[in-house]
Write a protein that binds this DNA or RNA. Structure first.
Lengths: 239, 239
DNA sequence: CCTAATAGTGCCAAAATTTGACACTATTAT
DNA sequence: ATAATAGTGTCAAATTTTGGCACTATTAGG
């Protein structure tokens, strides 16, 4: 049995029975007494506080406060959580916001120091998404909110996006691009993307995009070109 | 060698070299090509985005956005985060809820399974019954819709905007700025603008702005400075 | 077109790690 | 004194991981 699953079973058994003995746990999870002892040593090492009493009538007891979790979150995930908690608190409707903050503080602290810069850089693409779903204003009139999911997916999975694009002269073409960021300059939304056909970054007005679909497993080599060096000035995006 | 340690070494190697090949990594960490390939499959499974190109001149590239963090959260903290995200989603106002969910799913997965059940049960009863109704979307408010026209004009005509701003401490100042974008983190709106006096980008909470008026014939050139180097982190925008 | 260099997969035997059994020590209640 | 418990050390057996090999697919260059 997978060690992870077995350790989970041990914790479960301890919690269920309150106090337990190694023999009982071994029976419970279907492993030998020796193995359970080894696993418990590991769990203690990982921060679980497991009290024990030797002797007749003795046993094990899991300190309930010591239940912790480790999870590896991507910067994007941390950010999504940040947005969520910050917005809720700002709205004054988040109970336990102190706890949520404490949790997030831990997560942020666990980010390697150079990732703080990454986090800021990531703002680019988030700027966009952060705004996206519910902006319900006459502003938004010019772009179809139904388009957004495909773009979100494309950003996050880093897939190519294919769509129909009607340019300023009304000519319609099919594009296959690698999305880099969303830029919102009310009332227009722009997709900033690498166009591999033309080998350059382009802005696409969202209200001129139709039938988007993301193409899994991009057949184009990814651009690792720093964003800021390659995006054409915003000015040019304005017709 | 321990698989965790080896995977860390692979990530380190990828980050150090930017682009790399399997053969080089294998040399680097002292394992066979086959093993590196297996490890990379696992890393991808765990959320690392590793791009690859076959063929002569091909190789691997670790997407910097997939940088991950490990943090130990107590059950209470996870709980608070769950409430936050679930409430936001229930109210339909959480952007990138997919990401937040993914993050929380990871956290939950790392919790003993009975805890997860407890959390879910509690959450279901909580957000349906208590939280969701409190989220009032009409409260998009906090910002006066009457302000928008002036801002729209400023954006479109690319004029400077002057307004009164009351900061977190209640102090009121007059600002003259060049609007760049609107950042919407419901229910708060932020104006992202270049402040020529202070020579930096600033966030202004819209609900703290009053008496806006645009100044025709801006004497300031519009800034196209990349966001990431100049915008203060969103977090700091929340007092 | 051909060749070299690369990512990726399937298979299997060898290598390494984990597990279980057993013998042991120390502690405690009856 | 005895029974029941936590905990440790050792070693062979069981299981998992690893490396080697043969393979396919893709790409760049000659």
């Amino acid at each position: 049995m997978n060690i992870r699953i077995r350790q989970d079973a041990i914790i479960r058994s301890l919690r269920r029975n309150g106090t337990s003995t190694i023999a009982v746990i071994a029976q419970d999870v279907g492993a030998s007494r020796r193995t359970i002892l080894r696993d418990i040593a590991v769990l203690r090492d990982e921060g679980f506080v497991i009290h024990s009493e030797p002797g007749r009538g003795g046993g094990l007891y899991l300190d309930p406060q010591s239940v912790q979790t480790t999870a590896r979150l991507s910067v994007a995930e941390v950010f999504a959580l940040l947005i969520s908690v910050a917005s809720m608190r700002a709205a004054g409707i988040l109970p336990f916001s102190g706890l949520a903050d404490a949790g997030l503080a831990k997560i942020e602290k666990a980010l390697p120091s150079d990732k703080v810069r990454d986090l800021r850089r990531f703002l680019d693409s988030l700027y966009v998404g952060a705004l996206a779903p519910q902006v319900d204003l006459s502003d938004m009139g010019r772009m179809d909110p139904a388009l957004l999911p495909a773009f979100e997916t494309a950003f996050l999975k880093r897939h190519c996006l294919q769509f129909h694009y009607r340019d300023a002269k009304g000519a319609e073409t099919t594009r296959l691009v690698e999305p880099q960021a969303m830029l919102i300059l009310p009332p227009l939304w722009y997709l900033v993307a690498w166009d591999p056909m033309r080998q350059e970054f382009r802005h696409f007005r969202m209200d001129r995009i139709s039938k988007p679909e993301y193409v899994e497993g991009s057949k184009f080599r990814r651009r690792h070109v720093p964003f800021e060096d390659n995006v054409r000035p915003i000015r040019q995006a304005f017709p």
